[in-house]
Design a protein around this nucleic acid. Structure first.
Lengths: 262, 262
DNA sequence: CGCTGACTTGAATCTCTTCAAGACGTGTGG
DNA sequence: CCACACGTCTTGAAGAGATTCAAGTCAGCG
């Protein structure tokens, strides 16, 4: 891990765009965010950033690259809980409890901002709107996890795979890392298998079915995916983007109550 | 739903016991908790308390009975996300976003306390220790969900079933609703199937295997379960109670930072 | 040029589901 | 009080879906 003090504003438009959906952020908030995110780090691929069972006193924001959150069984089986993409925070629960209950690993070269836990609490106190925007971003993760659980419990391999691809398309579009129907997908079939609760072989066959039905095109070399018929893919997956909450503002009454703390 | 103002303190020892693990609660906190939980409701079984897609401005605390949190696919398949037992809060995300993303349904006759969202925010402001105890209780739910996801993705039917039974044993023991190795389990095999991502028939066969191996005894009439060999059951399930965080205090530094808001 | 990691495919096997039918206990109306 | 319906549990048999094992392809890289 290489660390460096950032001279320029360390994050791209995408994070601002994402937080801005939740509440309007003014110049004061931007300045505060700038200060909060001043410590950036580069992380090589396949590095553990947070390790299950270890202490962690920082909240992180991923600004470049992909990471996964996963848990291991004692015999080595792995289940990926979710993918972390630019604009996503991680490490809050670990910070609250002083111990992580899952491992976060980089899949590609990444850039992350590290926010000391105390600083985050201070932001919640001094800039409640900004703090709430960050909390919103984190709480949404729960919904993604719940939908993932539904996939593993009640969707077939085909439906499940289709659902994951639609989820990623939607989440990546929010931070402008996906076009109308294509994006970079830096995942091996092994990683997909660990996320989907399937064997590698079956992921391979499932992707082939999606390909043969003309729903998607994949280039394993460039790691690029084109979703030719997103509507059909969504129908197979029983996918509805509502759970991603990508446009929902918080309850007015709550915002007011929070603001009055100030 | 029948509503009534509670004359006496509405909650049993179990909730206090659970919150008290997190931080020491003094007389002021207890009085405040008493005020906060003054509105209790009785709910018949099989009632929706929170409905997916509908607005909800209240945080709830279950004090008696069992409930489930679930999601439906459009063709009627159901996945249960988790079980709610006495001492568990629910409805926070719905309150934050003003819309629920899953349904909470009572499985038995229940008693719940309803906390207006604004009151909860006020508690966070005026009694941060108590507020944090409640937040801790809610955040823990994320870990339970994650472990459930691991079960569905990477554990066999036998392992998964064993894991759920061990989880319930541990959680119920915390609120004194389970003995050393037995508790009331008011769940049909259909409900277990929807939680475990299995068919009813296979749940039946799986429970039979656990019974035949002398690991558990079940009485379908009285809805009582005896776990004869919890250690062996835990080994089959690769169960470690750590993720339930039933004894972990919060990070000191954070508590201090939170207290300084006051 | 041969190694490595990732992708691909076939065949055998196993897990879990589906369909179908029967048993048991409980509650209900004739 | 009995007959009947209903919900739940139970079991067998057939079949679909996913895994495992094994082998082979392909691109990138030292």
């Amino acid at each position: 891990m290489r660390r460096n003090r950032a001279a320029a504003f360390p994050i791209g438009d995408h994070v601002l765009r994402k937080l801005g959906i939740f509440v309007h952020l003014d110049a004061t908030h931007l300045a505060e965010l700038d200060r909060l995110l001043s410590e950036t780090m580069s992380v090589d691929s396949l590095h553990d950033i947070v390790t299950e069972g270890e202490s962690c006193k920082h909240l992180f924001l991923l600004t470049r690259g992909w990471a996964v959150r996963y848990k291991l069984l004692s015999d080595g089986r792995r289940q990926i809980l979710g993918f972390i993409i630019p604009g996503d925070f991680f490490g809050l629960r670990a910070t609250l409890f002083d111990v992580a209950d899952d491992t976060v690993q980089s899949l590609t070269d990444c850039t992350v901002c590290r926010i000391p836990g105390e600083d985050f609490v201070a932001v919640l106190r001094d800039h409640p709107r900004l703090g709430m925007a960050i909390v919103w971003s984190i709480v949404r993760e729960y919904s993604v996890l719940a939908e993932h659980l539904v996939s593993l419990g009640r969707r077939s391999a085909l439906e499940r795979t289709a659902h994951l691809l639609m989820e990623l398309l939607n989440r990546l579009q929010l931070v402008r890392l996906a076009g109308e129907r294509d994006f970079e997908l830096p995942l091996t079939q092994e990683i997909l298998a660990d996320a989907l609760g399937l064997s590698i072989v079956h992921v391979n066959r499932t992707l082939r079915r999606l390909r043969q039905q003309g729903l998607i095109r994949l280039d394993p070399q460039s790691r690029w995916i084109i979703i030719d018929r997103p509507d059909d893919l969504a129908e197979i997956a029983d996918f509805s983007p509502l759970y991603l909450d990508q446009g929902t503002p918080p309850a007015d009454s709550l915002l007011k109550a929070i603001r009055s703390q100030h």
